[in-house]
Every structure is written in structure tokens, then in C-alpha cells.
């Protein structure tokens, strides 16, 4: 059963003004259904990162709207947006961005800790086992390899069962073996839990593993192809 989980309407982002004006995004519109695996590709400077960040609620659009599960997220005030982000959006970055003083378990459960909510231990355990980091729960980030740190990042993004997971070049900092493993993990969650996943990548091999590819060029959608049902 299809359900629209994300809808973007006339999204525009302009940096600077007058002579130095840059239109990172120019009237972009599309929607994503629940459970879709979307890859966003494009050359550097095309606006794909800007798009992702606006989707993630960390950067405001100049014009246009973003609806997640029917909520106009930019109609929320800053506080509510932060809470929304915490519960409904999972963000994964190229540079893992873990908190150095928290151990693996704490880093994964960070969104829950911020919410003051109790952890569902069964779910957490399953998540950790799937990620393959069960023996490292009490370690600090500086004791993990790059691949392990990215897994922790993924764990953090998924721990709240968010509506959508957004990943910005998640394998950019990893070797090919780790990259492949990471992509497999993401695909796993997408298939098993119907986790909606949007990845930005410049790696064609990764893009081809998605269900749908959106190509962005000069702030506009150049191509929007479903390659797999």
C-alpha cells in the first residue's frame, strides 16, 4: 500500500543577493512514498546537499514547503522543529559526527536520551546485532574504525524509527569493502522495516542499487527515474 511520506513543493533556496546571488535550488517539487529507496545524484554544486539539508530540517528554504507525514515542517517553530527532527528524521553524514565523550550505546540512543524516553531494549538489541557492533557497546568513538563509526551513525539515525532517513554521502569516507557493507545495511533496513531512505551519492554503483534515481543539475530536477519496483 502506497503512502506519501514526503512531499516537496516549489522548493527554492537562494544564497546571497544581487550580483552574488546563487540559486542553489530552483522551484523543486517531488514526493516520496513510504518505503522507497531514493538516490539523489548530481555533479558538485548542483544543489543536492542543499536539498538534503532542507529535507532534514536543518536549513530553511527561501521559498516553498516541505511536508513530512503531512506536516509542514517549516511552519513549526524552532523548538518544535528540533523535536520533530529528533523523532521523525534520521540524518547520516559523511563524517560520522559522533559525540566523543559518549560511548557507542549512548551515541546510538542519543535522540531518545534527548527526549527523556526509555529505550526499548529488544529493539535496540536487534538494531545493534544487525549493525554488528554488539561487542563495542561501551567503547568510545576514538576506539572504533571508520566503518564501525559509520555503523553507529546509522544506529543513531534508526533508533527512533523515523519517518525518513537521509544520508549525505554515507560511504564517502570509507574503503570499498566498508562502503559495500554500509550500503547493504541500509538496504536491509529499507527492505525489512519499510524504512524510507534517501541517499545522496556521486557513486553510480550505489545509485543503481536504489529504487529511484533523482538527478539534480543547477538546482533543478534533470531526471526522475524509477528503476526498480
Amino acid at each position: 500500500m502506497q503512502m506519501e511520506i514526503l512531499r516537496i513543493q516549489n522548493l527554492t533556496k537562494i544564497y546571497g543577493s544581487g550580483d552574488t546571488e546563487v540559486r542553489a535550488l530552483n522551484n523543486v517539487s517531488f514526493s516520496v512514498q513510504k518505503g522507497e529507496f531514493v538516490a539523489i545524484v548530481g555533479p558538485s554544486g548542483s544543489g543536492k546537499s542543499t536539498l538534503l539539508h532542507i529535507l532534514g530540517g536543518v536549513d530553511r528554504p527561501t521559498d516553498g514547503k516541505v511536508f513530512i507525514e503531512g506536516n509542514d515542517i517549516y511552519a513549526l517553530n524552532e523548538n518544535n522543529l528540533a523535536v520533530f527532527r529528533r523523532r521523525q528524521i534520521g540524518l547520516i553524514y559523511q563524517f560520522y559526527n559522533l559525540i566523543p565523550v559518549l560511548n557507542v550505546e549512548e551515541n546510538i540512543t542519543l535522540p531518545l536520551l534527548l527526549d527523556g524516553r526509555k529505550v526499548d531494549r529488544a529493539y535496540l538489541q536487534k538494531l545493534i546485532d544487525t549493525l554488528g557492533i554488539a561487542e563495542r557497546l561501551t567503547h568510545l568513538p576514538n576506539q572504533l574504525s571508520g566503518g564501525q563509526q559509520q555503523r553507529v551513525s546509522i544506529g543513531r539515525a534508526l533508533v527512533n524509527n523515523p519517518a525518513i532517513v537521509l544520508a549525505d554521502e554515507p560511504t564517502g569516507n570509507l574503503d570499498s569493502k566498508n562502503s559495500a557493507e554500509i550500503v547493504e545495511l541500509l538496504k536491509y533496513f529499507n527492505r525489512e522495516n519499510r524504512q524510507t531512505l534517501i541517499i545522496i551519492t556521486h557513486d553510480e554503483r550505489i545509485a543503481l542499487q536504489a529504487d529511484r534515481i533523482i538527478a539534480i543539475e543547477d538546482g533543478r530536477i534533470a531526471r526522475d527515474e524509477v528503476i526498480r519496483q
Binding site: L91, L110, L114
Partner: peptide
């Protein structure tokens, strides 16, 4: 950087 990350994860002001 950490602060930015915390805010991106959803820490309120």
C-alpha cells in the same frame, strides 16, 4: 562541531 551535531540530531535550544 559537536554542538552542531547535537542540534542536527534534534537538541532544542
Amino acid at each position: 562541531r559537536e554542538f552542531a551535531m547535537l542540534r542536527s540530531v534534534g537538541m532544542t535550544k
